[in-house]
């Protein structure tokens, strides 16, 4: 049976109410509402669960196993269902009879990543952050208590420096005595023309943005820094989408594109504080969209508080040090 709430607080006094505020503020809906109220940008949050379709028995088995593992790791907090074709089509009638089934999790959702980035930029500048675009950081040096960042002719000094430079994090972290192993993993994605409401919720293979376009993807290809699309992959993505939803066959492709994910060796984020240069931090992950509220919350608290955080410590890059294992 699915839960009614994530957390129940007993007691509505100062303590309970303060806790309720703090805990609720960490959720996606509150994060999204905050951005809308402060920047005027609606990032298109839909949090009504998500499906991952399985076309073959192998896919079904692998998915079931994966879901079981996640549930175990979260001590049962993660909820999911495995739906066969009949159950699935009872909920999404457009799905082809050819689809074996799907996993469903109510935790899944969707935001528009482009609008999220736009909103975050507006917010950070409204909060007084200075933004220096188009500057490649050439060097970072450290003396006790101060970092100097050389970028595009400027030399900027600060007591703390946070590296969130995507694939460039490895190079920059090295300058500050950190080992942050990241590698590119290409993903290709199809975007269709706008259609009237088609999908009620997100699926791993396909989602509909608020504007009406469908996003179909994504692929995982280890091809170095090559950001190009390939005929083979976009053909495969289209074929899979049409197998799941045959009525999409007449829909036009608007855009196919490829991008490089920032992958850590185990696929789990790196939140690392430098021991050699106190005040230097590295943040690397491939899921900047999903984790945005966490980054704006707990990770930011950890960095600005200079406090070791027991949970975040588990995400240190030290886990990749050979001497540690």
């Amino acid at each position: 049976m699915s839960n009614d709430f994530d957390t129940i607080i007993v007691g509505g006094g100062l303590v309970g109410a303060a806790l309720a505020c703090g805990i609720a503020a960490k959720s996606w809906p509150v994060f999204a509402r905050g951005l809308r109220e402060t920047t005027g940008i609606d990032i298109g949050l839909q949090q009504n669960g998500g499906y991952d379709f399985c076309l073959t028995a192998d896919e079904w088995d692998a998915r079931s196993e994966e879901m079981r593992l996640v549930r175990r790791h979260t001590r049962g907090e993660f909820e999911y269902e495995m739906l066969d074709n009949a159950d699935l089509r009872a909920r999404i009638p457009q799905v082809s009879p050819e689809v074996l089934g799907a996993s469903y999790s109510r935790h899944d959702g969707h935001v528009n990543p482009l609008l999220l980035l736009h909103a975050l930029h507006r917010r950070m500048q409204a909060l007084g952050c200075r933004y220096y675009p188009n500057r490649r950081v050439a060097a970072i040096s450290h003396e006790p208590g101060v970092f100097s960042v050389s970028a595009g002719g400027d030399r900027l000094r600060a007591a703390r420096v946070v590296l969130s430079a995507g694939l460039d994090n490895q190079r920059l972290a090295h300058e500050l005595g950190m080992h942050v192993p990241v590698a590119p993993l290409r993903g290709q994605l199809l975007i269709t023309e706008r259609v009237e409401n088609f999908l009620p919720c997100a699926t791993l293979q396909l989602r509909q943005t608020r504007e009406g376009s469908l996003q179909i993807g994504d692929s995982h290809e280890d091809v170095g820094l090559d950001e190009s699309t390939t005929l083979e992959v976009i053909t495969r993505l289209a074929a899979r989408a049409v197998r799941i939803f045959p009525q999409l066959s007449g829909l036009r492709l608007q855009r196919a594109w490829a991008a490089l994910r920032v992958m850590t060796p185990d696929g789990i984020p790196i939140y690392h504080a430098s021991e050699q240069c106190p005040g230097a931090f590295a943040v690397s992950c491939h899921s900047g969209v999903t984790l945005a509220p966490l980054h704006a919350g707990a990770v930011a608290d950890w960095i600005s508080g200079d406090q070791p955080h027991p949970l975040i410590a588990e995400f240190s890059a030290q886990r990749f040090d050979i001497s540690n294992t």
Partner: peptide, 16 residues
């Protein structure tokens, strides 16, 4: 510039 350079449907693409 992103493909497609001219309109193409998912069905046409899938049946390449």
């Amino acid at each position: 510039v992103r493909p497609p350079l001219q309109p193409i449907t998912l069905g046409q693409l899938a049946g390449i």
